[in-house]
């Protein structure tokens, strides 16, 4: 089975990758594709929160995406499946879904943001769209509730 692990450079996407590794059976997985999507028309086309202390050149969002992909790929080092690093460009959800079709993926792993107001009210969350339109099962990894927040 080919598994796609999507990253937007967030810590939560790293947590999602680790979560997959924590329960999945590496002998059942042939390939892991770590996919990052650069959004050319967004204010910050890609930001990498994962490479601690690293500095990619401020002008290159592509290198930011590459370093985030490398950080996620490092999670699966020596795990078994062949790991591919892929950087795509366009609208995040669309590209993840396209990648899933292209690689004939058996599972897509995405991180979702908070459980708070912003996810409930603001439309267009990437995880939501992937969930709705992916051609295969989707694992949406949410952050664990840590502190009770005001409702």
């Amino acid at each position: 089975m080919h598994v796609i692990v999507a990253t937007d450079g967030s810590r939560q996407s790293l947590a999602a990758a680790k979560h997959l590794k924590s329960f999945a059976d590496p002998t059942k997985i042939t390939d892991v594709s770590v996919v990052a999507v650069i959004r050319p028309l967004a204010s910050v086309a890609f930001a990498d929160d994962l490479s601690e202390g690293e500095k990619w050149p401020a002008g290159s969002f592509r290198e930011a995406a590459e370093s985030a992909v490398a950080a996620i790929a490092a999670v699966f080092d020596g795990w078994g499946p062949k790991v591919h690093k892929r950087v795509r460009s366009g609208s995040a959800a669309n590209e993840i879904i396209k990648a899933a079709k292209q690689y004939d993926a058996g599972l897509v792993v995405v991180a979702a943001g908070g459980r708070g107001l912003s996810d409930a009210v603001l439309i267009g969350s990437t995880a939501q769209r992937v969930q709705h339109y992916a051609p295969c099962p989707v694992l949406v990894v949410r952050p664990a509730p840590r502190k009770p927040r005001k409702r």
Partner: peptide
């Protein structure tokens, strides 16, 4: 600063 889920530079915005 990038918003953790929206990935937007919200302070700059």
């Amino acid at each position: 600063k990038i918003h953790p889920t929206r990935r937007s530079p919200w302070v700059g915005l």
